[in-house]
Design a protein around this nucleic acid. Structure first.
Length: 830
RNA sequence: GCCCGAGUGGCGGAAUGGCAGACGCGGCGGACUCAAAAUCCGCUGGGGGCAACCUCGUGUGGGUUCGAAUCCCACCUCGGGCACCA
């Protein structure tokens, strides 16, 4: 009570009180028995944060608030909502930061986690703190290592010598997904190529399935689109071009068995129909056949070119705007369609990591090939024309349009579309090619030559070879290594700990060595949702029965930045576990919704701009309820919005007025007054439907409108008018709602009440009279109240009688009347 | 270059074939106050008119329709993603 006898809204007091109550009552916590017995399980998942030293970012808060509102709403509907949170604390972010400030990650991370936990508790999400995960905890990464073994035993984890993306600044290998435009996604340093022996997960085996399921999973469309592009399916053909007899240097290894694939160049093409126009070949400089094809005269030049290409970093190597440059190898192969010998070149515009690393160049119908052919004076043949009569016309640029084949032997005159299949079939009959589907997706390199991650559970023995660590010896604990800084060697810092590194072989007992690489952070996060319900179990990664009850995840809300990395990997891992018989579903998330990006005053938030919103400051000043409500009000959740400091005032005023209405004023008894009742039902409907569709901004606007109507003209509100609003606002402002619920006389807290969400009567949600719009020739001339359900004739005569309407019709003949029931009359006259 | 999304008052944004600008911020005027803050009430897209009203207006140009912010075509701008992908 203040001096004037008023009880003003004091958010901090209210929020501290209810957070204490929730903790004491365990309102949001599940016991094992509750998890096993839940009748209406709803798994509400949000993307667990990486606990940075800076603390919770407003972007995290935005994401979590939107997800928490959805979960709280489901709970108020009476579902058993499991809403866990955790920490994705392994990885290069953490390690780099630890290096920068000179604190060991084993000290730094628990500190950050503690700080995050404090912040997460303060903003009022209904997290189940009994079921948190921390990826750096041995009780978690034991199962990350177990997961690796599952893939290993399935033949899906393989070690390959491979050219990899090497970040010279982070001194580690990056997955293709972590390379943005040829540069490290983290530090923006140009990435170089290196060849290292790495562990790969064969995600490409699952490419088609990952693509196919996109057609039925309930996800945000843009996210599906991003995955589709990333998987990058193209249909075409593999075509084999035999090396030309007598025009290729003889095999230098006398007596060596000549491999079949050493005698031909295979290419992948999406345009097999243009094969008659393939007038030369281009190989990637690294292509294994270059050596064999190169003639003595060309050798010096070819080798110089290959050295030059190898030294080039991937940024310049993959730049589209580079001049096409290459060199002739001196070798030839045979175009299997024409039988002609065609020269073989090498050029850096052909990439070894896509298709077969070789292309058939069709300069007449491919812009890059045209540019290359023009530059080096190579023949350009037209094999497609819009009309057959154009067969003889020369090409001034590559023609990539549709048409019919020309200059293509028996296939001339065939339309492009059907000739693709016909030529592929013709080649296949002669063993010169076959239909082929190619994917842009690459295998997932999970090796990291770093310290801060789960050690890959593999042991190398001179006698037994590669030996997986037996399951009962997991976890392979990450040792404390004082100097964990990576170096230029490309060997993980773990190799420095001799006592850890040397280990007896699990199979024969002889002295053996551990794998010293750790796994990619994305592996940690690829399965964490499976762990949540089974947290505490140290005998299994996830309990089968509990998993059956709770998974797949019912609703997953997160940022679009994880569209291709995390979401694709977790789908892949789920499919693998299903194929191993460990799960009964192959898509981990029943529904996924992306949220938008939050900007500040029209600009991207960044430390360098100095416009980063620190949630703590706002929560301290306005309270968590206002902050949450504002974040959801400032724009459409799935599209993001613009955070403006002034904007907090609106939601604060709304919550304060709601407080005043319940706490300050006298509430009258009796059913809602007629004028308010219709609005009440309409509001319940709108808020319910808007939350379901994550349209939080308009849900809040509807509640504001309703409160304005309840308070209209300083009238005395009725309890039955206000109490439903207290529940509607509860997902957004849970503390305030609890307090008002209690002040309305309830003994049981709102969130412990079974299914308190109000229902609406659809008949009462609509008014008896509707405002008709009367148009004359499409222009609004009057607005008139009419009875709901009025007939066309009734509306028409009422409209014609209206003064302004009559005035606009003066002297004109009515030609037509458009009638939209309960909405509009449009009189067309002239 | 290709793909996706967006362009609406001073500002954030509503409206997805039928009243453009809901809701909120800011602004202006008023009440309360010695005063200010807070709070409450009213007004608030441009132009014209005393007014009733009229007129213009959703990036630009065209189209479909009785009627277009909304659908179609072309273009411009911004944001995001992909990119010598054969």
């Amino acid at each position: 009570m203040s001096d004037d006898g008023k009880t003003p809204y004091r958010p901090t007091e209210v929020e501290e009180k209810w957070q204490r109550v929730w903790t004491e009552r365990g309102t949001n916590l599940f016991s094992d028995a509750e998890l096993d017995g839940a009748e209406r399980p709803f798994f509400n998942l949000m993307m667990f944060p990486y606990p940075s030293a800076e603390g919770l970012h407003v972007g995290n808060m935005y994401a979590f608030t939107g997800a928490d509102i959805y979960g709280r709403w489901k709970r108020l509907l009476g579902e058993d909502v499991f809403e866990p949170i955790g920490f994705d604390a392994f990885g290069i972010h953490s390690e780099n930061f630890a290096l920068k400030i000179g604190t060991h990650p084993m000290e730094l991370i628990p500190r950050n986690v503690a700080n995050f936990t404090r912040q997460l508790r303060r903003f009022g999400a209904m997290y189940d703190w009994n079921h948190t995960v921390n990826t750096t905890d041995p009780s978690y990464y034991k199962w990350t290592q177990w997961l690796f073994l599952q893939l290993y035993h399935a033949g899906l984890a393989v070690k390959k010598e491979a050219p990899v993306n090497w970040c010279p600044s982070c001194m580690t290998v990056l997955a293709n997904e972590q390379v943005i435009a040829g540069a490290c996604e983290r530090c923006n340093t140009p990435v170089e190529q290196r060849t290292l022996s790495q562990w790969f997960f064969r995600i490409t085996e699952y490419a088609q399935r990952l693509l196919d399921n996109l057609s039925w999973i309930n996800w945000s469309e843009s996210t599906k689109k991003a995955q589709e592009n990333w998987i990058g399916r193209s249909e075409g053909a593999t075509v084999h071009f035999p090396l030309a007899r007598g025009k290729v240097a003889e095999d230098r290894h006398e007596g060596a068995e000549v491999q079949p694939d050493r005698n031909r160049i295979s290419v992948f093409t999406t345009r097999p129909d243009t094969i008659f126009g393939a007038s030369f070949m281009v190989l990637a400089p690294e292509h294994p056949l270059v050596e064999r094809l190169t003639s003595d005269e060309c050798r010096a030049e070819v080798e110089a070119y290959r050295r030059h290409a190898a030294a080039m970093d991937l940024v310049s190597r993959k730049k589209t705007d580079l001049d096409k440059a290459g060199v002739f190898t001196g070798g030839y192969c045979v175009n299997p369609a024409t039988g002609e010998d065609i020269p073989v070149w090498i050029a850096d515009y052909v990439l070894m990591d896509y298709g077969t690393g070789a292309i058939m160049a069709v300069p007449g119908h491919d812009e890059r090939d045209f540019e290359f052919a023009t530059k080096y004076g190579l023949p350009i043949v037209r094999v497609v024309a819009a009309r057959e009569e154009e067969a003889g016309y020369a090409l001034e640029e590559a023609y990539t349009g549709n048409g019919v084949l020309v200059n293509s032997g028996d296939f001339s005159g065939t339309p492009v579309a059907e000739s693709k299949a016909a030529i592929t079939a013709w080649l296949a009959e002669r063993n010169l090619g076959e239909a082929r589907i190619n994917y842009r997706l690459h295998d997932w390199c999970i090796s990291r030559q770093r310290y801060w991650g789960p050690p890959i559970p593999i042991i190398y023995c001179d006698a037994c070879g590669t030996v997986p660590v037996p399951e009962d010896q997991l976890p392979v604990e990450l040792p404390y290594v004082e100097n964990y800084k990576p170096d230029e060697s490309g060997v993980s810092p773990l190799a420095r700990d001799d006592a850890w590194f040397r280990v007896p072989c699990p199979t024969c007992g002889a002295e053996a060595r551990r794998e010293t690489d750790v796994s990619d952070t994305f592996l940690d996060s690829a399965w964490y949702f499976l762990r949540y319900p089974s947290v505490g179990r140290d005998d299994v990664a996830f309990d089968a029965e509990r998993t059956r009850r709770w998974l797949p995840v019912d609703m997953y809300i997160g940022g679009e930045e994880h569209s291709v990395l995390h979401l694709l990997y977790s789908r892949f891992i789920t499919m693998v576990l299903k194929d191993r018989g460990l799960l009964e579903f192959e898509e981990p998330y029943h529904a996924f919704r992306k949220h938008g990006l939050l900007i500040k005053e029209g600009a991207k938030m960044s430390k360098s701009r100095g416009n980063v919103v620190i949630p703590d400051e706002y929560i301290e000043r306005w309270g968590a309820d206002t902050f949450r409500t504002y974040l959801m009000f400032l724009g459409p959740y799935q599209e993001g919005g613009d955070f403006r400091d002034q904007g907090l005032q609106g939601p604060y005023g709304f919550l304060s007025r709601l407080w005043d209405t319940v706490v300050e004023g006298e509430l009258a008894d009796g059913p809602p007054e007629e004028v308010v009742e219709q609005k009440l039902h309409a509001t319940i409907r709108k808020v319910t439907e808007d939350i379901e569709g994550l349209r939080y901004n308009t849900a809040i606007a509807a509640m504001m409108e309703y409160l304005n109507a309840v308070r209209e003209g300083n009238r005395t509100a009725r309890r039955t008018e206000v109490e439903p609003l207290v529940v509607l606002v509860a997902p957004f402002a849970p503390h305030l709602a609890e307090e008002l619920w209690e002040r309305l006389g309830h003994d049981t807290p709102l969130y412990d009440t079974a299914a308190p969400w109000p229902t609406y009567d659809a008949a009462k949600a609509i008014a008896d009279t509707v405002e008709f719009v009367v148009q004359v020739n499409g222009k609004v001339r009057a607005r008139m109240a009419m009875d709901r359900g009025i007939t066309e004739d009734g509306a028409r005569s009422a409209a014609l009688a209206e003064d302004n309407v009559a005035r606009h019709l003066e002297g004109a003949t009515i030609r037509k009347v458009i009638f939209v029931p309960d909405r509009l009359v449009n009189i067309v006259a002239g």
